[in-house]
Write a protein that binds this DNA or RNA. Structure first.
Lengths: 137, 137
DNA sequence: AATTAGCCTACTATATTAATAGGGTATGCA
DNA sequence: TGCATACCCTATTAATATAGTAGGCTAATT
């Protein structure tokens, strides 16, 4: 399941990508517009800022704004920051690899075989889809 | 994340699919061979039996055996029984659809758009992959 | 200086997962 | 018939992750 954190994060990113100029948008504005708990959204935007997707400005007239061009933001990067691994199981993960304790031979494992295929196809989509593709801008 | 339930279920299915004849295999045998908690495996096999993937025989010489031909068992069906929805979010699910409370327009939603693509590609793999493909039999 | 709005830490409620426990019931064989 | 075998079923629990809440701090603007 996709976490609400990721869902909200993507919604916030598209909201900010749709802004004409780079004028900062307040958390509360996005929160109301997208029906997201303000405090929860706050922590999500903070994560995105720490990972250089967003910039922020404090004080009056402050808020968050997008740093890169939407067409240069791959959804694979967004997913990995917000959701974590793209793979459904750590033993096929490229960025978050972990060996299964119970499994003596990955190459002989049916689950590994199946999930590697799923990871490949999902990753392909996440890499080929940018924020610009999602927000029509 | 793929649950251990599904992981173990697929492992058990491949184990049973690899059996030459339809001789019942005891839970304990699979449990030891695949390093799965016996009681947990018991409940998983029960689920698979109730969904007509497996048959069982009680008493001495009893156990579980596969009912259909491995090549006729789509992984999509297995996933839906053990894991639930194939979609990462209910609003793009074909079999477990639910509307998002916070989202006024699915067609305008970036998350919906992205996740629909992921569902399509995953579903394609789960439908085209059979148990026979995974266990080389 | 006052106000605004982001920054940061800590806590909590809820749900799900992964087991575990323990007894019940049908089957086969001596 | 009786006993051992092995599946059947319900209930409980421990651990973990998610989603959200609370509250105060700090920097920037006017």
């Amino acid at each position: 399941m996709l976490s609400k954190k990721t869902k909200y994060g993507i919604k916030a990113l598209t909201y900010l990508a749709r802004q004409e100029n780079r004028t900062p948008v307040q958390i509360a504005t996005i929160s109301k517009s997208e029906n997201i708990s303000l405090k929860f959204l706050e922590s999500i935007l903070l994560t995105l800022r720490k990972n250089d997707f967003l910039g922020s400005k404090k004080g009056k007239g402050g808020g968050y704004y997008i740093l890169k061009e939407p067409k240069d933001i791959q959804m694979a990067a967004v997913m990995r920051i917000l959701e974590g691994p793209i793979s459904m199981i750590p033993c096929v993960s490229l960025n978050f690899y972990e060996k299964c304790e119970d499994c003596p031979d990955e190459n002989a494992c049916a689950v590994h075989k199946l999930m590697a295929q799923v990871r490949d196809s999902s990753l392909k989509i996440f890499k080929n889809t940018t924020l610009a593709d999602l927000c029509n801008c």
